[in-house]
Simulated assay, not measured.
Amino acid sequence: MGLFSRPDSASDKAILVITWRKSRHSGGGGAGGQECVELASLNEGIGLRDSKAPDAGHLTLPAASFAELLDLVKQGHLDT
């Protein structure tokens, strides 16, 4: 899980491998659990992307900002 590098057998350059993960709680919600975000640990912070459109890009938040976002969600401040 997370980000690591490994030597590329064809050259001395490192290949970055990013592992995206989805919450184990994501199976029950709307659209059969398909409306989820995925997270990855990146060098720059925490990456977030839409699990339905993984090739559409991602948003990167510094770790401290992501922690603040999680606190707001857990406290219900972002409920609509």
Rank of each mutant, 00 (worst) to 15 (best):
S23T: 08
A67D: 14
L61T: 08
G45M: 11
H58P: 03
A10K: 02
E35S: 04
A53I: 11
I15P: 00
D55S: 11
T80G: 14
I46H: 00
A67S: 13
E38H: 03
E44Q: 15
G45Y: 05
K22T: 15
A56M: 02
D8H: 14
S51E: 00
G2L: 06
A64H: 00
R49G: 04
P7W: 01
T60I: 15
I46S: 02
I15Y: 04
E44W: 00
G28H: 13
G45R: 08
A53D: 14
R21A: 12
G2A: 13
I18D: 02
G45C: 07
Q75M: 11
G33H: 04
G57T: 07
S11L: 02
N43K: 12
L3W: 13
L48G: 03
A10C: 01
R49L: 07
R24D: 11
R49T: 04
D55I: 02
K52C: 09
L48Q: 00
E38S: 10
L78T: 04
V37M: 09
G33F: 05
H58V: 04
S41H: 12
K13Y: 02
S65Y: 05
A67L: 07
D79M: 01
K52W: 03
P62Y: 09
K74V: 04
G2W: 01
R6N: 06
R21S: 07
L39A: 02
G27C: 00
G2S: 14
P62Q: 12
L59T: 01
D8F: 10
W20M: 10
A64D: 02
D50G: 10
E44A: 14
G29W: 07
G47V: 10
A10L: 03
L48V: 15
Q75P: 00
G32H: 11
S23K: 10
S23F: 06
I18N: 01
S11A: 01
R21M: 12
G76R: 06
K22E: 11
Q34C: 02
D12V: 02
P7L: 05
L61F: 10
S23Q: 07
L69G: 09
A53P: 08
E35R: 05
T60E: 00
S11T: 14
Q75W: 01
K22H: 07
D50F: 11
A14P: 15
A14I: 13
V73D: 05
R6T: 15
D12S: 14
G57R: 07
G57N: 10
G33W: 06
K22P: 02
L39H: 01
A67M: 05
D71Q: 10
C36R: 08
A14H: 13
A56N: 05
V73P: 03
M1P: 13
S65D: 12
I46G: 01
E68R: 15
R24H: 12
L69H: 09
S9G: 07
G57L: 03
H77S: 11
D55P: 08
V17D: 08
S23N: 06
V37N: 03
D79W: 06
F4L: 04
E44Y: 00
M1N: 13
S65P: 02
H58T: 06
G76M: 07
A31F: 13
K13P: 01
T19Y: 14
R24L: 13
G76T: 08
L48Y: 00
A67Q: 14
A63K: 09
T80S: 05
E35K: 03
C36H: 09
E44V: 04
S65K: 09
L3P: 09
A67V: 09
A14W: 13
